[in-house]
Design a protein around this nucleic acid. Structure first.
Length: 188
DNA sequence: GCAGAGATCAGCT
DNA sequence: GCTGATCTCTGCC
């Protein structure tokens, strides 16, 4: 069952927590590649100096201000794409959830080919890695996860334990524990 | 097993 | 110009 628009209309931090255990599905041609979401991070706007949207709208981050349930894909460090899902409550102008980790479910052979590594635990254990494994680039910028047949998120499993931590790799906003992960992920 | 460098683009403190 | 919501490879222990 594909998640409805309403799912993404709640506070970004809640959506980040609720996305754990859901299944991210990607169709590449005839192949279905999917994985269970094991790690996420919430980025809001005016109250979140670590967010790309903090200083207002730019051509790059405009998706964060757009329709909830769509993707925000950005290119960073000159080499990597990262996948976010736009989500926010009415109180905020912008917000997105960074998908940081997956547990490979189907299409693992395709992931191996894309990633050029055969270590399962290394296929999608990071934001830059999972976009390579699922062939996600700026072509998927703004894709509507509620309506698209190529990229969407479905119901999955219920995580039995959720760990909240400070977000990774940021300098500002370290006080906010907006990184969420499940205890039964494959990766350390 | 771990630290450090390198790759190299977009948006600015 | 520099810095970053990153990852891989190299070299050394």
């Amino acid at each position: 069952m594909i998640l409805a628009r309403k799912f993404y209309e709640q506070d970004t931090v809640d959506v980040a927590r609720n996305l754990l255990g859901k299944v991210l599905v990607r169709k590449i041609g005839k192949t279905t590649v999917s994985g269970i979401i094991t790690e996420t991070e919430a980025y809001r706007q005016a109250d979140d100096p670590a967010s790309h949207a903090y200083r207002g709208i730019t051509p790059r981050n405009q998706a964060m201000f757009g329709n909830v349930g769509c993707t925000y894909v950005y290119f960073t460090y000159g080499m990597y794409h990262c996948l976010n899902v736009v989500a926010r409550s009415q109180k905020h102008r912008a917000g997105a959830v960074l998908i940081r980790g997956l547990q490979p479910k189907t299409g693992i052979d395709t992931m191996i080919k894309n990633r050029k590594t055969d270590k399962i635990t290394n296929l999608t254990s990071g934001p830059g890695k999972l976009t390579i494994a699922l062939d996600i680039t700026k072509k998927q910028y703004g894709e509507d996860l509620v309506r698209s047949s190529k990229l969407y998120i479905t119901e999955g499993v219920t995580p039995d334990r959720i760990i909240a931590s400070p977000r990774i790799g940021i300098r500002l906003g370290v006080d906010k524990k907006w990184n969420f992960r499940t205890s039964h992920r494959l990766f350390v």
